Amino acid sequence: MEPWLNTALTWIGAVGGFLGGAAGLAGAWVAVTSAREAKLEARASREQAEQSTALMAEAVETADSTKLIAGDARDLAIQSNDLADKSNVIATEAKSIAEEATEIARRREQRATEVHDVDWVYEMTDPGKLEFRNDGRHTAFEVHLVVYVNGEKATADLSEVSGGEVVDLDFPQLGDAIVHLIQDEVAKRVQKHHQQAHAAAYLQSPIIPYGMEGMFRVDWRVQWLSEQGTPREQSNSDLDYLGDLDPYEDTIETLVDRQLG
C-alpha cells in the first residue's frame, strides 16, 4: 500500500473517531437534556395535580359552605315567615283591643250621660202580700229584689220590669200576723158591744191598734241594670205600720155583725 494512502486512511479514521465521539457526546447531552426536561415536566405535572387536588378540595369546601349558607338562608326565611305571621296576629289583636277600648269608652260616655228614671215603692195589697212597683218611666233590666219583714225573707228575679209594672211578694208570717190583728180587733168590738159602754167612751177607744202592735221592720234592696247596662241599686230599712186595719174595715164590721147576730 502506498504510504500516502495509509496516511489518508489513518487521518480518515481519526476524523471518524472524532466525529463518533462528538456524536456520542451530542447524544449524551441530548439524553441529559431530555431527562431534565422530563423531570421538569413531571414536577410540573405533579404540581398541577396537587393544585388540581387543592382546587377540588376547595371546591368541595365551597360547596359545603354554600350548602350551609343555603340551609341557614332557608331557616332564616322560615323564621321570617313565622315572625311575619306572629306580627300579623299581634297586629290583629292590637286592632281588636283598640276597637274594644273605643267601644268601652263610648259606652262609658253613654252611661255617664244616660237618663234613667226608675224608683221603687211598695205597699201591702192583701194580708201578707207586698207589691213592689217600678214608679219610674223607664225599664229596669236584670232585676234582683230582696225583702225582709221582721226577718221573714222573700226574693224575686226578673229579666225586666217596665215603668209602672209591679212585683208581688208573699210573706205568710206577715199574713198570719195581720189576720191575728183583725181577729183581735173584732174581739174588742164585740166585747165593747156586750158591755154596752157609753157611746163616747166607745168612740174614744182605739178601733185600730196603734203603737208597736202594728209596726213591722221592713228591709229591702233592689239591684238592676239600666238600658245601657249601668248597675243600679236602691234600698231602705225602716219600721212600717203595716198593721193599719183601715183597708179591712168592711171585713171587720162583717165579722162583728156575724158574732153579734
Rank of each mutant, 00 (worst) to 15 (best):
K192F: 05
S205R: 05
E213A: 15
V161G: 02
N6Y: 11
P206S: 09
V147D: 10
G20I: 08
A14H: 07
R36K: 15
R46S: 14
T10I: 08
I97E: 12
V149I: 14
T251F: 07
D135N: 07
F141K: 02
T66A: 15
W220D: 04
P231E: 02
A59N: 01
G261C: 06
L239C: 03
L255T: 01
E47I: 13
H198V: 06
T66W: 14
H138W: 08
V60P: 01
E114Y: 02
N150Y: 02
Q234E: 14
A105Y: 05
E185C: 10
G136R: 04
V30A: 10
V15A: 14
G151Q: 10
I252H: 05
R46H: 10
M124R: 10
G243S: 03
N134R: 04
T92Y: 06
H193C: 03
K188M: 05
E41S: 14
A154K: 07
E227N: 11
A54P: 00
T66S: 13
L225V: 04
L68E: 13
D168L: 11
D240Q: 06
G164A: 10
D170L: 08
Y241N: 06
I208S: 07
T230N: 09
Y122P: 00
G136C: 03
V121H: 11
L158C: 00
L260I: 04
E131Y: 05
R217C: 01
N81W: 06
A35K: 04
Q204C: 03
E99Q: 10
F18Y: 12
A201L: 14
K95S: 12
D135C: 01
L5M: 09
A140I: 03
D157G: 05
A177R: 13
P172H: 10
E165W: 10
E233V: 09
L158Y: 12
G163D: 07
E50A: 13
V186D: 01
K192N: 08
E47D: 14
V32E: 04
S52Y: 12
K86F: 00
L19A: 13
E93D: 09
V179K: 15
D246R: 15
E160H: 09
E58M: 07
I12W: 09
G128T: 03
D246T: 12
T113N: 15
L68F: 06
G13K: 12
Y241T: 02
E47S: 07
E152F: 12
H194A: 06
D64K: 15
R258C: 01
W4F: 06
E109P: 00
A42Y: 09
G20Q: 08
E253I: 15
S226L: 07
L25K: 02
V222A: 15
A57Y: 05
R258P: 03
N134W: 04
G16W: 01
D176T: 09
A31V: 11
L158R: 13
